[in-house]
């Protein structure tokens, strides 16, 4: 979609960078924020309201939500700008007294986020009106919102910068040696662990399991490994890890042992105890 709105001359001239910075200096201790919801999923709104609870209390540095754009210094725009919200957004923008600061909040506000290529959205506040501060996040954490507003006011500095990496080596990243001398075992353990507990806890489960298996006196001996595994899973405090370690033993470890020797039913760990 092409850009249709052109900022009128008088608004553009009243909103030069110098005017804005001067204005920000004047309103540092008390500023009014008007929130425009341009078709957001309301996740961002919930976080904005979380950010103005006593937990975060942004009134410490003068943040106040107001009910009309005519009272506002800062426009806090969320959502990917649906077609229906195009004119309301412009009305709010033009109604705000100059100079005004526009803050785009959320992944949607900054660039369209998850909806960026949907047919009914413009894909970001900056496609319509000039934006000064971007707060990414979906939804942004209240601390991120407060950081964004503090950045807008110049209390805090922005942390992120464009990063470019070039001319790295073509050497392979380090690969850990396998306990079985075959990384396919580790691969299967990791896959099973992620399937059981998700990517975050799965990784922890993987570490715990590999550590446990290494403690076995002889890794290829199913009886000894079973005893070690039972002992260590009993020592594990979290019942989720306790159970999942046994499942991995039954499903992955024994499956792998098959290529060296026959296994029998007694090698399996009973999950019920």
């Amino acid at each position: 979609m092409s850009k249709t709105y052109v900022v009128p001359e008088e608004i553009a001239s009243a909103n030069s960078l110098e005017a804005k910075l001067e204005h920000l200096k004047n309103i540092k201790g008390s500023f009014n924020v008007y929130r425009v919801d341009c078709g957001s999923c309301n996740g961002c709104e919930i976080e904005i309201f979380a950010a103005i609870t006593p937990m975060w209390d942004p009134e410490r540095f003068g943040f106040k939500l107001v009910a009309s754009p005519r009272h506002a210094d800062i426009l806090l725009c969320s959502g990917p700008v649906t077609r229906q919200m195009y004119y309301p957004l412009l009305r709010a923008y033009e109604a705000t007294p100059d100079p005004k600061v526009v803050v785009a909040i959320g992944a949607c506000g900054s660039s369209g986020g998850i909806f960026h290529d949907a047919y009914s959205v413009w894909g970001g506040i900056d496609k319509i009106i000039p934006v000064d501060v971007y707060i990414p996040g979906c939804p942004p954490h209240p601390a991120t919102i407060i950081h964004g507003l503090a950045t807008a006011l110049g209390i805090l500095d922005q942390k992120l910068e464009l990063k470019e990496h070039k001319n790295g080596s073509n050497e392979s990243p380090e690969i850990k040696t396998s306990v079985f001398n075959n990384i396919l075992f580790e691969r299967d353990v990791l896959a099973e662990a992620k399937q059981l507990m998700g990517y975050l806890y799965g990784r922890k489960l993987f570490d715990k399991y590999i550590k446990a298996v290494k403690e076995s006196p002889n890794i290829k001996d199913t009886v000894q490994t079973k005893i070690t595994m039972e002992r260590l899973s009993r020592e594990e405090e979290d019942p989720r890890y306790r159970e999942c370690m046994k499942v991995i033993h039954n499903n992955v470890y024994l499956n792998h042992i098959k290529q060296f020797k026959e296994i029998d039913i007694a090698d399996r760990i009973d999950l019920s105890d």
Binding site: H141, T151, K159, L162
Partner: peptide, 27 residues
Amino acid sequence: TNAVLLSDEFEMAVRFDKDNLKERGEL
């Protein structure tokens, strides 16, 4: 290879230039 991991960083707001949110690597 765990080359991209979600970090603890939450202070992500940038002023004026959206390009500061980008990160590039050439291989």
